[in-house]
Amino acid sequence: MIYYIIYTSTPNGNVTPEVLNDITQESIKWNSQQNITGMLLNVEDKYFQFLEGEEMQVRKLFDMIKGDSRHTNVTIRVQGYSNERVFTEWSMGSWMLTNKELIELSGLKDLKAYLDDPVNNSLQSKKFISMMSNLLQTWISHEPERAKRLKSDH
């Protein structure tokens, strides 16, 4: 069984493509050694991250993430187990979007609803897994070169 955590947080300061790339590169190094995969999404004033792997390793990583000064309000939204990974070929993918772009991207309306109101959102784990799979496919189709480059770093 694969353990996963989906959490949100609030960035400290302005998130630029360079900041997101630095986080991604650090994550790739750590995650590939720990057999953790996932995706970090930045939508304006929110981070949304999906991590998956062996439970002890994911929990250890999440403890480190909670202490990272680059963000606050780190809150687990969903955690659980899955029979298979969503992000089989990436230690860490990342994507920066605006709220407008998120609304306009087909297949991601559930993610927008979740980011708008995560506490009261009643999506179940299977729907989250499907949502993350849609996010992955949309990311690959919109940023194929970056996705390919990050894949090769794994």
Rank of each mutant, 00 (worst) to 15 (best):
M1V: 08
M1T: 00
I2Y: 00
I2S: 04
S9V: 06
P11D: 03
N12R: 14
N14W: 05
V15A: 06
V15S: 01
T16C: 09
P17C: 00
P17Q: 08
P17S: 08
N21K: 14
N21L: 11
D22V: 12
Q25Y: 07
E26I: 09
S27T: 02
S27V: 08
S32A: 15
Q33L: 13
Q33V: 11
I36T: 09
I36W: 09
T37R: 09
V43T: 01
Q49T: 07
F50V: 02
E52H: 04
G53F: 02
G53C: 05
E54P: 03
E54S: 04
Q57L: 06
V58H: 02
K60C: 06
D63H: 12
D63V: 11
M64Q: 14
M64A: 10
M64D: 12
D68R: 11
R70N: 10
R70V: 10
R70I: 13
N73L: 10
N73R: 11
V74N: 10
T75I: 09
R77V: 06
V78G: 04
Q79N: 15
Q79E: 15
G80H: 07
Y81L: 14
R85E: 10
V86I: 15
V86H: 02
F87Y: 12
T88W: 10
S94D: 02
W95V: 00
W95E: 01
W95T: 03
M96A: 10
N99D: 04
K100D: 02
K100N: 07
E101Y: 07
E104N: 11
L105S: 01
S106R: 14
L108E: 05
K109N: 08
D110C: 04
K112E: 06
Y114P: 02
D117F: 09
P118W: 14
P118T: 07
P118I: 07
L123W: 01
L123F: 12
L123C: 01
Q124N: 04
Q124T: 08
S125V: 05
S125P: 11
F128H: 10
M131L: 13
S133Q: 14
N134L: 03
T138D: 05
T138W: 02
H142I: 08
E143Q: 03
P144T: 07
P144H: 06
R149N: 11
K151E: 15
S152Y: 06
H154Y: 15
